[in-house]
């Protein structure tokens, strides 16, 4: 599903205090079936942007078009329910939302809420456990007795069990060891490819951006600074400095080499293979 932000503003209202706009004049187009990474410093409004796609944070002005649905400041509850069924949202540390007695009940919670029948729920639970790589033997275990990595898989399974068309994720790899993080993200990429999902991923790690995303959205102070193809952004030296964007590992190595030999190379390498090719080309061509 295509997601369009149209002149969107939003703030968190706190009693009588109205905070400054946490999202300010955002215009954004996220294409159907694209994999978009959202980056930016802490407090830039990345998580709020995700919440808006799911209707958890309503705009104070403007509108958001999610597929055929439209989120406006005065949006009906039925529309929001329909949107939430189509948009799966994985929060930071999603395992904190686990509550049920068994893994089966927890994964089945979303489908039940969205009106799946008992049989459909059972099938959806088993199917999504397979997708996230959980052993079906865990079905009757308590989610609290599982390891951290498994808990996170259960939580993600609980979200994809409702068969969303859009998946929005807020740092799904946070707090995991590098191995666990790569497994989770690879799994998400497989879901994205196999089910034609539109995926929006918030991350701090530029290596993740390069490895998984096609598009990247840079945010700062509640505004979208730019939206580009991943390769275009990292090729644009000025933009990287201007928005204080960290470099992915291969590009950082390339910059070190460039500094040592005192000249800039023709292109920016985003993978180690590309860097090796580039070095061969620069020195032996």
């Amino acid at each position: 599903m295509q997601i369009v932000f149209n002149q969107v503003k939003a703030d968190y209202q706190l009693g009588p205090i109205r905070t400054a706009n946490i999202i300010n004049e955002v215009n954004l187009l996220i294409a159907d079936q694209s994999f978009t990474a959202v980056i930016g410093p802490t407090g830039a409004g990345k998580s709020s942007l995700l919440k808006m796609i799911n209707g958890l944070l309503l705009p104070s002005a403007g509108s958001i078009q999610v597929g055929e649905y439209s989120i406006t400041p005065s949006c009906k509850k039925q529309t929001l329910a329909a949107i939430r069924k189509r948009v799966g949202m994985v929060f930071q540390f999603p395992e904190h939302q686990l509550f049920a007695e068994t893994v089966e009940q927890d994964i089945g919670f979303g489908p039940t809420n969205f009106g799946f029948s008992r049989e459909e729920t059972r099938l959806a639970v088993i199917e999504s456990m397979g997708k996230v790589g959980l052993d079906p033997a865990l079905l009757q275990r308590s989610p609290f007795s599982l390891s951290g990595g498994q808990q996170r898989r259960v939580a993600i399974a609980g979200i994809i069990a409702t068969k969303p068309d859009v998946l929005v994720l807020d740092e799904p790899g946070a707090g995991l060891d590098p191995e666990g993080k790569r497994e989770i993200l690879t799994m998400i990429q497989e879901l994205h490819d196999n089910h034609k999902l539109t995926t929006v991923l918030v991350t701090h790690d530029m290596d993740d951006v390069v490895a998984y995303a096609d598009n990247v959205v840079v945010m700062a102070n509640g505004q979208v600074m730019c939206q580009q193809k991943v390769e275009e952004l990292f090729a644009d030296k000025e933009a990287l400095v201007k928005w204080k964007i960290d470099l992915p590992e291969p590009l950082r190595i390339q910059r070190c080499i460039e500094e040592q030999c005192g000249r800039a190379f023709s292109s920016a390498s985003l993978t180690l293979e590309a860097l090796a090719d580039l070095l061969l080309k620069e020195y032996f061509a």
């Binding site: 949202m89 929060f91 939302q97 919670f109 809420n113 409702t162």
Partner: peptide
């Protein structure tokens, strides 16, 4: 803070409060 987060997470999973 945590309550707000968990409430949001469960709303995203289809819980409608006040109904």
């Amino acid at each position: 803070d945590e309550t707000t987060k968990i409430v949001d997470a469960q709303r995203a999973r289809g819980v409608v409060f006040g109904k």
